[in-house]
Structures are given as structure tokens and as C-alpha cells.
Design a protein around this nucleic acid. Structure first.
Length: 263
DNA sequence: CTGGGGAAGGGGCCC
DNA sequence: GGGGCCCCTTCCCCA
């Protein structure tokens, strides 16, 4: 099994620097934004495909496509690929091809909000844009200072995180919606360049070469870590025993197991 | 057990 | 404001 299918597990060791953002929670008023980016609302199979890469922008995310006899499983996580991996090799539209056809094709594209039936997914998407604008479901919290709204805290509706710019929030939301989907294996990513890096695991492309040895890497950061192995003095040093390591993770492991601080 | 490689996530910066 | 890229970091696996 390729390691690329490993699911990241969040641990307490990961320390994103949200401290300054998390302190902006008082004096809040609310602004409404359209709820347009919930992955559970749009199965991948209903999204137009590209030969090599699937990409949705936030503004272009398809809206709720609700078949009359939906076979869309509820999403247990950001993306349940378990059911897709078996049929992902070019098999599109499990909703459209694996289900028995509806008596009236128009019923297959019913708006979940108002029940209106449309002739096609595209017309349904266009119709649902009206809900996207008119139906405030996601709430962005804007934090006021005492005198003016000089700072805004944009809350993610999927998790407790908040950001002080809409752009940062949109970037973060991509980690929930995972709009970049590998058409080879179905794995989804938050950003296009992550997908490109992942595609290299399929193609075997390794554009980053070590100048000291002939080893090549698909990822620049991995090359950088590798270069540390050629260095006599490693970048990360133990404060207790002065031993150096090529990686921060190795230093962490060292301090946790081998070298207990003098305590 | 340790070091290193592979894969991936996310913030920040620049254009 | 959005996309691309850089950089750092983490996690997992393996020799």
C-alpha cells in the first residue's frame, strides 16, 4: 500500500500558531456569507472532470446536486475514498451510472433547498447559486474593536479555527473541501501544488537532485532534509548533550527517548 | 533503536 | 484577493 494513502493524524505535538487569532473572540457581531463550500454536499462523481487534474475553486464549487434517489453516502471525513478507490480508474459518476435510472431524468437534479427540479446538473448549479447568495447558513464572526471594526475574525464553519482575513479563511477551508483530486487514485488535496507533488508519486518524477550524490527527490523539502545528511554538523542540536541531528523530528525523538533533560 | 526517505499539511510571502 | 511557491514541520515506514 502506498504511503501516500496514509491519513494524517493530528497530534498534540502539532502547534500551529493560532494563538494570536484565538484571542479575538469578544465584541463580536456577525456577517453572513453564502454557504458554498461543503464537500459533503457535492460528490466528486458529479463534478466535471479533467484528464489529469480535478480542481475546484471556492467560487466554482458545485452546489448541492440531489438525486431523487440519492446513493451518496454520508461523508465520514473530509473525503471518503474507500468507495472510490475501487472504481476510481476513470469510473465517473457513480451516482449517475451505478444507480437505476430515475423514471423522470429531471427528478435526478432536485434542489435540496426548495425542491425545484432541473434538467441538468449545470442548471441545478445555476439555480442553487440563488440560494448561495440568499441563504445565509455559514456565519463569519467579525470582531470589533472598541471604536471601529478594524479587525475581523473569520470563523471556519467546519472547525474551531478562525482567521483575521477572508483569504486566510478561504485557504483554510480548502483543507476541508479538498478541491484538488487526483484522477489516478482519487486522493484529494487542499492545494494544486500538493496534488502536483502527489502526482509525482504516480509518475516517478524526481526533479530535485542532490549535488553531492546522485539521489533525486520528488519534493524539495525532502532534498533539503537529505542535504543535511551530507553535512558534518547537523542543523538541529540537542541542548542537553549538544548532539546534532539532520531533522527536527529526530531531535525530538532524541530528547524524548535517549537524552532526558537534566530534571 | 536510530537515521533517513517519502509523503503530505499548512502558514507566509510574492506576484 | 487569489494563485503559486517556499519553507517548515509532521507522520509513517523501512533499512
Amino acid at each position: 500500500m502506498p504511503r501516500s494513502f496514509l491519513v494524517k493524524k493530528y497530534s498534540s505535538n502539532k502547534k500551529p500558531n493560532y494563538s494570536e487569532l484565538e484571542s479575538q473572540t469578544d465584541n463580536t457581531c456577525y456577517a453572513v456569507v453564502p454557504q458554498c463550500f461543503s464537500l459533503e454536499d457535492f460528490p466528486i462523481s458529479l463534478v466535471p472532470t479533467h484528464p489529469s487534474i480535478l480542481m475546484w475553486t471556492t467560487s466554482a464549487l458545485p452546489l448541492t446536486l440531489t438525486p431523487a434517489s440519492p446513493s451518496i453516502p454520508s461523508q465520514p471525513g473530509p473525503l471518503d475514498l474507500s468507495s472510490q478507490s475501487s472504481s476510481s480508474s476513470g469510473e465517473e459518476d457513480d451516482c449517475g451510472t451505478s444507480d437505476p435510472p430515475s423514471p423522470d431524468p429531471r427528478d435526478r437534479f432536485q434542489c435540496a433547498h426548495c425542491g425545484k427540479t432541473c434538467n441538468s446538473p449545470i442548471s441545478l448549479s445555476h439555480h442553487q447559486l440563488t440560494h448561495c447568495i440568499a441563504r445565509p447558513e455559514a456565519v463569519i464572526t467579525i470582531t470589533e474593536t472598541s471604536n471601529a471594526m478594524t479587525r475581523a475574525a473569520f470563523h471556519c464553519k467546519h472547525c474551531p479555527k478562525e482567521y483575521n482575513s477572508l483569504g486566510a479563511l478561504k485557504m483554510h477551508i480548502r483543507s476541508h473541501t479538498l478541491p484538488c483530486v487526483c484522477t489516478t487514485c482519487g486522493k484529494a488535496f487542499s492545494r494544486p501544488w500538493l496534488l502536483r507533488g502527489h502526482i509525482r508519486t504516480h509518475t516517478g518524477e524526481r526533479p530535485f537532485s542532490c549535488p553531492h550524490c546522485n539521489r533525486a527527490f520528488a519534493d524539495r523539502s525532502n532534498l533539503r532534509a537529505h542535504l543535511q545528511t551530507h553535512s558534518e554538523v547537523k542543523k538541529y542540536q540537542c541542548g542537553t548533550c549538544s548532539r546534532t541531528f539532520s531533522r527536527m523530528s529526530l531531535l525530538h525523538k532524541h530528547t524524548l527517548s535517549a537524552c532526558f533533560p537534566s530534571a
